[in-house]
């Protein structure tokens, strides 16, 4: 899974490209295939997905000499500019991540788990860029996160292996990795059943090998009560590579709000 396609550069797919009339820009990112063609004063957008093949690691972006044969929508721009950009973004709702198998954090232990969430692609054309549309790289199921069915928050659902070793991480070009540092300062083991990852308040970074990252989230489970201290680092995570800032947070992080969240609000009702 972690083989890197060496033929094409994996890192520059998010840079703006010049697309001539009658040509199109194609992006293959994980399961997503996206083609945007320029025809006269309009952009033709074609989206398709390949679920069956193991396409998780592919990331290829190139200009083709033809227009997409079938397109979903046409975006008319009076002054057809030739610049086109595929911009990676984090999801617009929190993602509730659940491990495939239960993970327990023993008392007085500390661990960094690497959780990944699919990114969205924002198609922007022209200079200054105008947003045509946003497309999730992978369709995500809705889920509800809250103490009951009356109050809570609509989120996306995700699954994770909750890996804790950096070298085990596969490069999946369409997913952004969030390091989650958890410290269990209590006497009892902590079951990590599910975690609501607040991706709309995180910043997205790109690494040299094409992997996408967000800042680290630190979480401390205190002895007293249900409260957990949550902190979002201001700096990009330390993964031994230089990281380039790709997109800022979609929402302003309300610091107070995040810090004061209870543990059950982050881990779900049965998570502790």
């Amino acid at each position: 899974m972690s083989q890197v396609e060496s033929r094409t550069s994996r890192t520059d797919w998010w840079r703006p490209r010049r697309v001539g009339d009658g040509r199109s820009l194609e992006l293959q990112l994980g399961p997503l295939s996206l083609a945007v063609g320029r025809s006269g004063g309009a952009w033709l957008v074609a989206v398709s997905r390949e679920e069956a093949r193991d396409t998780a690691s592919r990331a290829r972006c190139r200009v083709r000499r033809r227009l997409p044969e079938q397109f979903e929508a046409r975006y008319v721009q009076a002054q057809s500019a030739e610049w086109l950009r595929f911009e990676p973004l984090l999801a617009d709702r929190p993602v509730v991540v659940r491990p495939y198998r239960p993970v327990f954090l023993l008392s007085h232990e500390e661990v960094t788990l690497y959780l990944s969430t699919p990114v969205f692609i924002r198609v922007a054309a022209g200079d200054p860029p105008t947003v045509l549309r946003e497309i999730p790289s992978q369709p995500m199921s809705d889920t509800w996160f809250g103490p009951n069915t009356r109050s809570g928050e609509l989120c996306f659902a995700g699954r994770t292996h909750a890996r804790h070793r950096l070298e085990e991480l596969p490069v999946r070009a369409h997913r952004a990795i969030t390091p989650l540092r958890i410290r269990n300062a209590t006497e009892t083991a902590l079951e990590l059943e599910k975690f609501s990852l607040p991706v709309p308040v995180l910043t997205l970074f790109g690494a040299g090998n094409g992997s996408l990252w967000t800042q680290q989230i630190t979480l401390v489970r205190e002895e007293v009560g249900d409260l957990a201290r949550v902190a979002i680092e201001g700096q990009p995570p330390d993964i031994g590579q230089t990281l380039e800032r790709l997109a800022g947070p979609r929402q302003d992080p309300e610091r107070g709000n995040l810090v004061l969240r209870t543990f059950s609000a982050l881990f779900g009702a049965g998570g502790h």
Binding site: P139, D142, F145
Partner: peptide, 8 residues
């Protein structure tokens, strides 16, 4: 089905 909620 992506419209169907994971939770509940």
């Amino acid at each position: 089905n992506t419209l169907c909620l994971d939770e509940p």
